[in-house]
């Protein structure tokens, strides 16, 4: 009888150990938790056009936006990154910042306290994770160190590797150059004058700087003047600058700068005076299909014309590559 009692106790003990273990997965799925974050904690080379998403194990019912924060690391310290909207899509929480992510920054996502109410309860744990939008140079992958591209392709598929063309701001450069000499009907000798008009996008552009070079040597330089007359033109700005005593053959290096004097676009144009002409004009207009856009390697390699445009429209050294886990 005693033996039966002991067996019974052992059996009960075994049950108490085994039953919770068997039921554990069911219990866990009912307990509010995060299934996945995109980007994942510690992710590097995160594409700047990525969405910040957090997937829970149950549908989201209510969000307390006050508990959800985004930070960007600037000069070693984290500063608040304003959030435009926080959206729920079934079990996924989408955090959309006011401004798109920038290259080469560290971002911190934070959820505190009872921020999310799910169908299976309130997610009240604290969550904090970082990701980085650093990048790889396209030029390095494609020209200097092609082995690195091969290595990258062992980790990511062409659909997960994304190349971003830089934004372009210079729309047009127009050079009018008058050689030193006299007009036929005007006997007065006029020294050589060169006028350069530059049209840019109005967005972000504050200043335009022009350098005149010959055989790599800087001859003259200066900031172009903003022309008020062109203010009627929507979305564009017009600048001009004049030089004298210029040679007949020279390079015009134009840079567009933003309000913090950061170079946001540059163009080099070659000017070559034609023989027999006193006044020479040369205009180059720039039109872009790919500027500011991101394309997967798969897209570029499968569409020849797109890849051609992509390579032709941006300096290779300005194209940035990032990767995403799908």
């Amino acid at each position: 009888m005693r033996k039966v009692n002991i067996l019974g106790v052992v059996f009960l003990l075994l049950l108490s150990i085994l039953v919770p273990a068997v039921n554990h997965p069911v219990q866990a799925s009912n307990y509010p938790k995060i299934e996945k974050t995109i980007p994942a904690a510690g992710d590097q080379h995160v594409p700047i056009d990525t969405d910040i998403r957090i997937q829970f194990n149950s549908n989201i019912l209510k969000i307390s936006a006050n508990y959800i924060k985004l930070f960007v690391k600037t000069n070693g310290t984290y500063t608040d990154l304003p959030i435009k909207t926080i959206r729920k899509d079934r079990d996924v929480l989408n955090i959309i910042p006011e401004q798109s992510l920038e290259f080469n920054k560290d971002y911190l996502v934070q959820i505190n306290g009872p921020a999310i109410e799910l169908e299976n309860g309130t997610y009240s744990q604290s969550l904090s994770y970082e990701f980085s939008t650093n990048y790889i140079d396209f030029y390095e992958l494609m020209v200097i160190n092609e082995q690195r591209l091969e290595n990258l392709l062992t980790q990511y598929t062409p659909r997960e590797i994304k190349a971003f063309a830089p934004k372009r701001y210079i729309n047009e450069i127009n050079v009018t150059h008058k050689k030193p000499g006299a007009f036929k009907e005007d006997q007065t000798s006029i020294s050589g004058i060169t006028n350069i008009d530059i049209t840019t996008k109005s967005e972000d552009v504050k200043n335009v700087h022009v350098e005149i070079l010959k055989n790599g040597k800087l001859l003259q330089k200066g900031y172009a003047h903003s022309l008020n007359e062109d203010k009627g033109q929507k979305n564009t700005l017009k600048f001009d600058i004049g030089f004298s005593k210029m040679p007949d053959f020279f390079d015009v290096h134009v840079t567009a700068l933003d309000s913090s004097q950061k170079i946001i676009d540059s163009k080099i144009l070659k000017f070559a005076t034609e023989e027999g002409k006193i006044i020479n004009t040369y205009k180059e207009s720039f039109k872009y299909k790919t500027e500011g856009k991101g394309y997967t390697l798969h897209e570029l390699l499968s569409k020849e014309s797109l890849f051609s445009d992509f390579l032709a429209e941006s300096p290779l050294t300005d194209i940035k590559v990032q990767v995403e886990d799908k």
Binding site: L213, N215, G216, D251, H253, I268, L269, K270, E304, F307, S308, L311, A312, P315, L316
Partner: peptide, 18 residues
């Protein structure tokens, strides 16, 4: 129809995939 990019110093470059 492909135009070369001017790099300065009388040098033009084109990257052509096809």
């Amino acid at each position: 129809s492909d135009e070369f990019e001017y790099k300065g110093n009388n040098l033009f470059v084109l990257y052509k995939p096809d």
